Every structure is written in structure tokens, then in C-alpha cells.
Simulated scan of single mutants.
Amino acid sequence: MIKFVWDTSAIINIKEPNEHGYSPGHSLWKDLADGWIKGEYRNILPTLAVFEVNATVSKLERKNKPILREFYLLDDNTSLYDIDKNLIQNAAEYFTLDGFSFLYGADLVFACIAHIEDAYLVTMDGKLAFHAKKHIKVVDLNESKDTANYRELFGDQP
């Protein structure tokens, strides 16, 4: 099973298309749902992202940028990941890893979850992608702003 941990920037991007209506976050989510990326998959949304997404939406609304406040991503292939004592105990050894030690706050949480779950970290945060890729697989959606370049990570597909 292929797993994907979505950070806040990638979740927000699902609802932020460019001027041509393309969003790499939405495209990846759809490619998974449509079976373009073959095999079973799991989208993992850290519970912390619920708060971060709502804070980001509020910030965008204050700047008069249109974005849907409520959008639903939970389905049979998506799960919430609890930020709890168990995560802290399992992640403690990663806090000082080269690269991870440069991450702040939620970025470190997302990277640790991806490491523990042997998952791709899906992000639009260039700094997070740069530091995290030393130890985990990263889908940097910045490399797919105009077209689905992330597909190269998954080899030849239909």
C-alpha cells in the first residue's frame, strides 16, 4: 500500500487552482482516486492540519481571497492521524536527524508521521521538502505547478 501524508500547504492547494483551473494537489488526489497511480493507497491527514487549514482559510478570507471554508476529504482511503503521546514516543528519535532538526512546529510533525508510516510527504512547502527528503519520500507539488510532474515518481502508469 502506498501512503501519503498531506501537510497543510498541500491540503489548501487542493482548493487553490491556478488561473487555468489546475491544482497539483487536486490532480494528485484525483489520480489516486481514479487509479492512475496503481495499487492500494491511503491518504493520511494529521489531525493538527484541521486547525492549520481553518487558520489558513481565515487568513485568506481576511485578504479577500476566495476559498471554500468547508471541503470534505474524508473517504474510504483517507484517515486522520492522531497527534498524541504514542506519536511523540515513536517520533522522538527523529527530532535530531539531519534535516529534521531544521524543521519547525507542524512541519516536524508531518515529517515524523511520514517517516513512521513509510509514506510520501505531500507538500507545497519548499523548505519542508528540502529538509525532509534526506530521510523520507517527498512529493513536492511545487514541481508540478503547471502539469502533473509528480507522476514521474510512480513510474510508468496507464
Rank of each mutant, 00 (worst) to 15 (best):
residue 1 M to P: 08
residue 2 I to Q: 15
residue 6 W to K: 04
residue 7 D to G: 04
residue 9 S to A: 08
residue 9 S to V: 06
residue 11 I to W: 02
residue 11 I to H: 03
residue 13 N to H: 07
residue 14 I to R: 04
residue 14 I to Q: 02
residue 17 P to I: 07
residue 18 N to C: 02
residue 18 N to M: 00
residue 19 E to C: 02
residue 20 H to V: 06
residue 21 G to T: 07
residue 22 Y to I: 09
residue 22 Y to W: 09
residue 25 G to E: 02
residue 26 H to G: 00
residue 28 L to A: 06
residue 31 D to F: 01
residue 32 L to E: 06
residue 34 D to Q: 12
residue 35 G to E: 05
residue 37 I to K: 04
residue 43 N to Q: 09
residue 49 A to P: 02
residue 50 V to C: 04
residue 51 F to C: 09
residue 57 V to R: 11
residue 58 S to F: 15
residue 60 L to T: 09
residue 60 L to H: 12
residue 60 L to Y: 14
residue 61 E to D: 10
residue 61 E to V: 13
residue 61 E to R: 14
residue 62 R to C: 14
residue 63 K to Y: 11
residue 66 P to G: 00
residue 68 L to I: 07
residue 69 R to P: 05
residue 69 R to V: 06
residue 70 E to F: 11
residue 74 L to C: 00
residue 76 D to P: 03
residue 76 D to N: 00
residue 78 T to Q: 03
residue 82 D to V: 05
residue 82 D to N: 10
residue 82 D to F: 11
residue 84 D to S: 00
residue 85 K to R: 12
residue 86 N to I: 15
residue 86 N to D: 13
residue 87 L to C: 03
residue 87 L to E: 03
residue 88 I to C: 00
residue 89 Q to W: 09
residue 90 N to D: 10
residue 92 A to H: 07
residue 92 A to D: 08
residue 96 T to V: 10
residue 97 L to D: 14
residue 100 F to A: 10
residue 103 L to W: 02
residue 103 L to R: 07
residue 104 Y to K: 14
residue 106 A to Y: 12
residue 107 D to Q: 05
residue 108 L to Y: 05
residue 109 V to P: 01
residue 111 A to S: 15
residue 113 I to T: 01
residue 117 E to Q: 13
residue 118 D to N: 14
residue 121 L to D: 03
residue 124 M to N: 13
residue 124 M to K: 13
residue 125 D to R: 09
residue 126 G to N: 12
residue 127 K to R: 15
residue 134 K to E: 14
residue 135 H to N: 15
residue 135 H to L: 11
residue 135 H to P: 06
residue 137 K to D: 12
residue 139 V to M: 08
residue 140 D to E: 10
residue 140 D to W: 07
residue 142 N to M: 12
residue 145 K to E: 13
residue 145 K to T: 13
residue 146 D to W: 10
residue 146 D to F: 11
residue 147 T to E: 14
residue 147 T to S: 14
residue 148 A to M: 10
residue 148 A to Q: 14
residue 149 N to C: 09
residue 150 Y to N: 05
residue 152 E to Q: 12
residue 152 E to H: 14
residue 154 F to A: 03
residue 155 G to M: 02
residue 157 Q to Y: 12
residue 158 P to K: 06
